[in-house]
């Protein structure tokens, strides 16, 4: 989490390290012109540049759609992770794990939402609750998608060594996904503040925004961890 402003695209010509024996590219179209056009997609926004997502979160209807798609992404990401990581438990254990992990994620987010909002009040950085829902859920969705992407690693680790490598990879995957979600949260909050304010934030404001993002991560981690402890999705029924 650096204090530098959000990164802009670096001005640079694309040059392919072609074979020195290939003909010169003078007649070929420039590499830039071959780049795929930027197509706005909500699912892409969940892990893409935070600016467009912040724009969506400011609009009531677009935000409801962000929340809806985020819920879907969380269900898919966590369920995929749970199923692949618990394949040694059999079909029933996997299904139970998928259900419990997804439910635990949602319950944890619901439990953390209020305290996160309250932290905003205490550090003089209130974000309307409806926008917090969008920020938090989209952050969790990007985490869940990453968790889903890490699922094959956990699966392999459990195959190799269910006693040590498996649980460690499980904890590692949660750690990586959680931290990336925290960074994501901070960047979306920053973009949101910049979009609402229309000018750069002052140092004090940036500081409070960082506290806010960290506390959001802490609360979500706390409720999520408590939920994992309570529901034990990975131990099998």
């Amino acid at each position: 989490m650096s204090s530098t402003p959000l990164p802009t695209a670096a001005p640079r010509l694309l040059i392919e390290p072609a074979s020195p024996f290939a003909e010169a590219e003078l007649e070929l179209p420039r590499l830039e012109s071959l780049l795929p056009p930027e197509r706005p997609s909500l699912l892409g926004d969940l892990y893409g540049a935070p600016g467009t997502l912040a724009g969506r979160l400011l609009d009531r209807e677009a935000r409801a759609e962000v929340v809806r798609i985020s819920i879907l992404a969380i269900v898919i990401g966590t369920a995929l992770f749970a199923v692949l990581a618990t394949s040694h438990l059999g079909a029933w254990g996997s299904a139970r794990a998928a259900l419990l992990l997804a439910a635990n994620t949602f319950l944890g987010l619901m439990g953390a939402l209020g305290p996160i909002y309250a932290t905003g009040l205490l550090v003089a950085a209130r974000l309307p609750l409806s926008r917090w829902v969008g920020v938090l859920l989209s952050g969790a969705a990007s985490s869940a998608l990453l968790l889903g992407a890490l699922a094959p690693i956990a699966h392999l680790a459990f195959r190799i060594d269910p006693l040590w490598a498996g649980p460690l990879s499980l904890a590692g995957a949660f750690l990586v996904a959680g931290l990336s979600g925290g960074v994501r949260l901070y960047r979306v909050l920053h973009a949101l503040a910049a979009a609402v304010r229309g000018e750069a934030l002052r140092d004090g404001e940036l500081f409070r925004l960082k506290i806010q993002a960290r506390m959001a991560l802490v609360f979500t981690a706390l409720t999520g961890a408590l939920g994992l402890w309570a529901f034990d999705p990975f131990l099998g029924g």
Partner: peptide
Amino acid sequence: LIAGVVTTATLPLMGYLVLVSR
């Protein structure tokens, strides 16, 4: 007022703790 809103916002966490406390 802010104190009241802060405590009210923290109430759902208490509910969550009741659900998951082991």
